[in-house]
Design a protein around this nucleic acid. Structure first.
Lengths: 344, 344
DNA sequence: GTTAGCACTCGACGGGAGAGAGTGCTAATC
DNA sequence: GATTAGCACTCTCTCCCGTCGAGTGCTAAC
């Protein structure tokens, strides 16, 4: 048995994959012969299809049905056969307009991105916001709220802003707060929350001896925000689109997929695994999550201030229009990068 | 035809409703006679059922099926027949524990509330966060971020915190920012963003003549945040629970309902209509949204700092366990009220 | 007013027939 | 040796039909 696909086999695999992607019906030899001018008869195509099936590129739902691409088939299609698509001019401008929010703050832009992605792809869209804990600290500020309470405002270099209310000793004055804010900003600027280990904390406490009780509390609150859900927040949209796909007509399968969108922790893990460069495509079982074995994920990392900060992705059936989805994900990622070259 | 229901009719309606709620099967006269000791024969029950159907309290899916409550039937059940349920001690503590987050900030508590509500009810949960624009202004603060950019932090009396980055003229110094922050906080404290009309703005601009270009920009940014999505943000969870209900085995119906959860604007409208006191129950067609005609909504308003600030609700099939859902919604609302008696 | 009895209706289930799509194999052809 | 026509075969899908069971409505008796 040959292990490489000769040109004709590739052509046939391409034809089958294309056809199946657009019709969702298993495709037979006659259909291929009629629809694509390959100059060979259905019988020949059948022989080739049998070979392709034996090699693992095609599957047959049942004996007298046509063939559908297997996971390996999709992989080969995506890696070798698919022609990369250039997004239509109109869609490019649609994306640009969607992302142009008046206040160009990252959270709002991300929300718009989710919407436009899910609309254009007819799949579900997922975007991972910049993680607070991985962004570099840009500004820390403590504001008085009530006696005994202060608001900690943290701005990260990726443009994310966190708020947290913490208890403070009541003798701390507004001036103290301001002084400490300035000090901490100066001291921690450029570091990430992950850098705030026990070692650094004790060093700072040493330096801040005059404020020790308070500053320990404060630093601990900072560290807590590392662990808390605020980092890696996930925005999703268009989950309903998936319910329209014929492969999810079965409610059990639909529920599996939809439930993923409610477990934002798992989702963020998934997106986080995206490679820093280009678009990553995860097909069917390649997904770690069992619930996504009938789906593919197309994801890309976006950059804020030149640093990889978050990721965006599209979740759809393995039968998705990869060429189109990829070009959309790519374009949106690029627009976000451009938009947040400088986050402020 | 009588227009009131005698006691026996009520008993039968109650029995049918209860049975249908727990089994999801249309219930017949024999079942009622067997399962509830009414001392009357199936035939008599049939007669009564025929009457109830004629009066509009019951429906028949098809000729030889049992009866199910109509919308009017559910309404009567909820208003007159249903016994109010006291939440089990264990569930009460489960709720209290879920809501006890370390940092008791409103957004986090709300997230927990959504989770616990959807878990306990097996329905979808929806919570409306306090609207920025309706909360009273507690603190306004401008922080320098970059040359030409400031971060506006607004704390409302309901504990909600908004951040917005705005461009500022580069000659404005940190001291200026601080002075204006203090001035505006003093001037606007206790007002809502809705009070910030053209009239008030010009008055303030007059007072702030020295800073006029800047302060106009600033005030406009404030007003913009009234219109922007930040107010009335909706948190949802447990939409998958709905997919497990037999009435949504049909994917079309499921999609309708799920799609509601992606249109947060409509959802917030819906919740906003809740009455300020007690629990509101909206059954089937009583819902404004066509997609919810197969669902009921149980909602309640919660208070922060003594003011009605947001609302929480449960969306489920009309066949939901009203008594249970109501007691859960009621209890969670009460816990939130207690928790945010003073938001800070 | 209540109930027993009974004919009737309707959906669910299962088997069987027929259509349609597609295959794999064989033998003929290029 | 590769390609193709022909053909028998397989499998699903759909429709039809008969049966079963649940439940009803009506009537007549209690």
């Amino acid at each position: 048995m040959k292990h490489t696909l000769d040109e004709r086999k590739q052509t046939i695999l391409l034809a089958i994959t294309r056809d199946y992607i657009s019709t969702a019906d298993p495709v037979g030899s006659r259909t291929i012969a009629r629809r694509y001018e390959l100059g060979i008869s259905p019988a020949t195509i059948r022989n080739e299809m049998a070979d392709l099936e034996e090699m693992g590129y095609l599957e047959q739902p049942h004996t007298s049905a046509g063939r559908i691409p297997s996971q390996k088939g999709y992989r080969f299609y995506v890696d070798r056969l698919m022609e990369h698509e250039r997004l239509a001019e109109g869609e490019q401008t649609a994306i640009r307009e969607a992302l142009e929010v008046k206040a160009r703050e990252i959270e709002q832009v991300i929300h718009q991105a989710v919407r436009i992605i899910s609309d254009l792809t007819s799949c579900a869209a997922v975007v991972l916001l910049p993680e607070i804990s991985r962004g570099r600290i840009h500004t820390l500020r403590l504001l008085p709220v009530e006696p005994g309470r202060a608001l900690l405002v943290m701005i990260s270099s990726s443009g994310m802003i966190t708020n947290r209310i913490l208890p403070i000793p009541s003798q701390v004055s507004e001036n103290d707060l301001q002084w400490i804010s300035g000090y901490l900003t100066e001291r921690l600027k450029g570091l990430t929350l992950l850098d705030l280990d026990e070692h650094l904390i004790t060093a700072i406490l040493e330096e801040l001896r005059g404020y020790s009780a308070f500053s320990r509390q404060l630093l601990e609150a900072l560290v807590r925000s590392v662990q808390q859900a605020d980092g890696g927040k996930v925005i999703t949209g268009g989950a309903t689109n998936i319910l329209s796909q014929p492969e999810f007509r079965d409610i059990e399968k639909a529920r599996d997929v939809i439930s993923i969108f409610e477990r934002s922790h798992d989702l963020s893990q998934l997106l986080f695994a995206s490679r820093p460069l280009g678009v990553k495509i995860t097909i069917g079982n390649e997904n770690v999550l069992a619930e996504l074995r009938a789906c593919s994920l197309v994801s890309a990392v976006y950059f804020v201030g030149g640093l990889p900060s978050g990721a965006l992705g599209v979740v759809g059936p393995t039968r998705m229009n990869y060429a189109r989805v990829i070009s959309i994900v790519e374009y949106v990622a690029r627009m976000i990068n451009d938009c947040f070259d400088d986050p402020f």
